[in-house]
Each structure stands twice: as structure tokens, then as C-alpha cells.
Computed example of a mutant assay.
Amino acid sequence: MVILFRLLLLIAILVLAYSAFKYLFHPRRKLEAAHEKKQFFFLDEEKNVRKNFLVTYKGVMFEGEKYLGTTDKSFEIVAIYLWAKQTERLKGLSNEDFTFIEEDIKLRYPNAKINWKSPIKEFLQAQRKQKNKTDK
């Protein structure tokens, strides 16, 4: 009976250690930690086309939806739609911040056309029009 109790206790300790290890090294936890510290972090399952990716940058969480399509050589992600989960946290972000996010996504998905949803879409359009006027 004592041996059985010790065996069950050992199994319980192993299960707890395994659970703690899985929790500490889970990518979602890293995303949440970066979000709290207002750092950049990109969480994506690149092999799973149907699963959206998450990006945190300067305390704002963005979600991106991937769309599969064809290129000249193969099937690739050809369109990405991005939006902020909490638009009230966008305060203080500039055009350069959104450009940084787009460039990082382009590194992972070079054939994708990145489309922002409101209100970021309108902000970027106004910024680009203003830049075009100053360039002329």
C-alpha cells in the first residue's frame, strides 16, 4: 500500500511539473507578457492558414486574418486583413508604427497585400495623401 501511495505521489508531481513547464513555455503566455511590457511580439501558426495571427506592439493588440490564394508558382497567403482589438489604445501610434508592423508581416508573408480595417485604414490613407502632397 505504501509503494502504491508513493507511486501515485510521484505521478502527481510529474503531472504538476509537466503542466508548469507547458504553462511557462506556451507562446500565448509570451504574447501576454510582451503586451503588458508594451513590446513587440508576433504570434502565428504559419502552417495553419485558417488560424488568425496576433501582434502586440506598444501595448496595442492587433489581429490579422490570412487569406490563401495563388501566385505564379504556388499557393501562398495573398491577403491579410489587420485590425486593432481595442481601438481606444491606438492613441499615440504614428504612421511609422504601422509601417513597422507591415514590414514585419511582409518578412513572413512576402506575397501578401496588407489591408487595415477602420479606423486605421482611414488614418493611413490620410497620412499617405498628406505625404503625397508634400512630396509634390
Score class of each variant (00 low, 15 high):
V2I: 12
V2A: 12
R6D: 08
L7W: 07
L7F: 12
L9I: 04
L9G: 09
L9A: 11
A12P: 03
A12G: 11
I13F: 06
V15E: 07
Y18V: 13
A20L: 14
K22M: 05
L24G: 01
H26F: 07
H26N: 13
H26P: 00
R28N: 14
R28L: 15
R28P: 04
R29S: 01
K30L: 02
A33N: 15
A33W: 14
A33G: 09
A34H: 11
H35I: 11
H35D: 11
H35W: 15
Q39P: 02
F40P: 00
F41G: 02
F42D: 04
L43K: 06
D44L: 01
D44T: 07
N48C: 07
N48I: 11
V49H: 03
V49N: 08
K51S: 13
N52T: 05
L54A: 06
V55S: 05
V55D: 10
T56N: 12
G59Q: 07
V60A: 03
M61D: 04
E63T: 11
Y67R: 15
G69P: 00
T70F: 14
D72C: 03
S74H: 07
F75A: 14
E76I: 00
I77D: 03
V78P: 05
V78L: 06
Y81S: 10
A84T: 07
K85T: 10
K85R: 13
E88M: 05
R89F: 01
R89M: 03
G92Q: 02
L93C: 04
T99N: 08
I101T: 07
E102M: 12
E102K: 13
E103I: 05
E103K: 15
D104P: 01
K106E: 09
L107K: 15
L107A: 08
R108G: 00
I114H: 07
N115H: 14
W116L: 01
K117S: 10
P119I: 00
I120Q: 12
I120D: 08
F123H: 09
F123Y: 14
A126W: 05
Q127S: 02
K129N: 14
K129F: 12
K131A: 15
K131Y: 09
K131Q: 14
K133R: 14
K133I: 13
K133C: 04
D135S: 00
